[in-house]
Design a protein around this nucleic acid. Sequence first.
DNA 1: CTCTGTGAACTCTTTCACAGCC
DNA 2: GGCTGTGAAAGAGTTCACAGAG
Lengths: 228, 228
Amino acid sequence: MSVQTGDERDGRHLPEAAVERLAGYLRVLSTLPPIGTICSDDLATAAGVKPAQLRRDLSYLGSNGTRGVGYDIVLLTQTLSSALGAQQSHRVALVGVGNLGRALVGYSGFRGRGFKLAALFDVDPHKVGRFVGDLRIDAGADIVEVCTDRGISIGVIATPRESAQGVADVLVAAGVRSILNFAPAVLEVPSDVRIRRVDLGLELQMLAFHEARRAEETTRTSNRGSTS
Amino acid sequence: MSVQTGDERDGRHLPEAAVERLAGYLRVLSTLPPIGTICSDDLATAAGVKPAQLRRDLSYLGSNGTRGVGYDIVLLTQTLSSALGAQQSHRVALVGVGNLGRALVGYSGFRGRGFKLAALFDVDPHKVGRFVGDLRIDAGADIVEVCTDRGISIGVIATPRESAQGVADVLVAAGVRSILNFAPAVLEVPSDVRIRRVDLGLELQMLAFHEARRAEETTRTSNRGSTS
DNA sequence: CTCTGTGAACTCTTTCACAGCC
DNA sequence: GGCTGTGAAAGAGTTCACAGAG
């Protein structure tokens, strides 16, 4: 029984940082015609990384290229999809249907990439019962019941900060083990629950930091009157 | 002559990864009463990092604590604000006023953290001229003129993928050197322009990856019938 | 005694450079 | 010739553990 699926035999430990890039490669591939091959140089450029990095990343999944030629686009797409779990259909629940929530509902990344948005929740009684697309907004109080019923495995929190921890607790109680958190809060969850946070304020501050540093350097430079 | 301002004398090279956490510390501090001190253990816990990491991060900005006591909350807030450029007011332009764009306009992180949302743009003629809050939506064609006029230093791209590169080009032409990109595209810009990308699809796929891995492990475990 | 600041060890990630296959 | 896959080196970032200030 030595069928190599590429899922179980990963060679070395696949680094967390590489997973993020693999998803990027998969997206680039999806914009390509599904025929022929592509070499590491071209794919790396399109994905915004160096060729050596791409080859290393792919090597974690086994040998999927042909020396002297490149990577078969169809084959590589399959390998990546499988490694990233894009073959299964993950059911996603979204909590908090404000502007951000609606933006997420409209986000095309759900469709056709292994994700199915399968539940919406909000605490606002004015919103409960209304539809966004073809999905009904359910009451926050029903999270456990509805999520369990629909086999939700991924939760997205798009509520204000104050509600985020409570929502996380309830999602965990509903059996959700992966959470994407847009609220600017550090959530406490059991260690087997995986959280990813997207924090808009933080992203802005990173940019502000570099702006500040830039201004500082400009000042210093002009103080010295150097133009070299 | 050992005047340590903390701004110029950074000791060692401040790692990119640390900047992100510094912003997190600053946020935690802002939720605290502005009196007394806090020790690395407590602040680290609240920010979701280890105490040693917090101390190391702060040490990049110089010595801002008192041994045996902790960090003065007011003083540390000032140090962090200054280091992160939260003292200046950065003018931000948002391009693409769809659901995501509106969510960003409503985002409270702009106010009171050194950011001023100072321009909105959209290509849709139906949107141009309308107001969101007290800001008028201007035409995409006017980006260069308006951004230059209003001294915009940070641009946020919340358009569909197809438009993102074009918008980036125009922002760069308008003198913007820091861009936050929500479109799922790799943008090409001059090397002195700093880009941060927030990619919702990618975040979801990272979670999916770990879900897939989890499922795999469950299968393996149940195959062996082990419950220990 | 408490808690910071930091050299040193360690781990994780990237990059180089080239052997090996087409 | 061209391009992949990878050992080995370099570089970044994290954690330990303890000297030393209060």
